[in-house]
Design a protein around this nucleic acid. Structure first.
Lengths: 109, 109
DNA sequence: TGAATTCATCGTTATATTGCAATAATACGA
DNA sequence: TCGTATTATTGCAATATAACGATGAATTCA
């Protein structure tokens, strides 16, 4: 991402940007939507569902895991992923607070 | 970003990812927060406020403009930026719908 | 034990993003 | 018109992302 200097920004700004960044790819949005839709865990059908190669899916899953948004448990040779509700709600609250800023003030442009 | 294949995804997924991506940098988060805080328009004090070089700020502003989230009007030699409430609310609704998915189902992990 | 299955990791390529210096463009005032 | 101030654009250099083939690790089953 070039050379972003995280220390220039507030913790708040970095956190929002971090969350937004992980949502900033349609494959990851699709993975999360699928996990919600299937509700119960799913394994590697994401490869078929999304249409990317297995290593690519694995990489996207890793990024989602790094933020704790999803978690996986081993089930034999397969791995079962699902949403982590606590982290999801934490992100939802953080982003909502940012998005809910007041837009009713008279804007001069 | 490597070679993301936008045509693989739904319009919905691309839209959410597009919005999230532009929020995925702390400088842009900071710019938007500042525009909200100052409420009335501001010009190029963002350079002092954020602490990046003027061309860098200009580039971030351009990305926010591309999505229509902010708009600028010329005021002499300065340019006055502010939030575009319509677009902001459209983004807010789109992201909220995605984030508000139900997390109450029993998760198996 | 050995083959098969599933997922993660590594290594590489292609592309995107960040950041800035230099420079251009625009508008104002003297 | 000329100089000044402000913002945009251009052209890099450094770094991050995305994608995938090849390979490795773990597990199940024969």
């Amino acid at each position: 991402m070039g050379r972003t200097k995280a220390e220039m920004y507030t913790e708040d700004q970095n956190k929002i940007a971090m969350w937004a960044k992980v949502l900033g790819h349609p494959a990851r949005v699709g993975i999360l939507q699928h996990l919600f839709r299937i509700n119960s865990c799913i394994c590697g059908d994401l490869v078929d569902e999304i249409g990317l190669a297995q290593p690519t899916i694995s990489q996207h899953l890793k990024e989602l895991k790094n933020l704790g948004l999803i978690q996986g448990t081993v089930e034999g040779t397969r791995i079962c992923y699902c949403i982590n509700p606590e982290k999801w709600n934490e992100m939802k609250a953080g982003i909502a607070e940012f998005l809910n800023q007041d837009t009713t003030s008279p804007n001069c442009c």
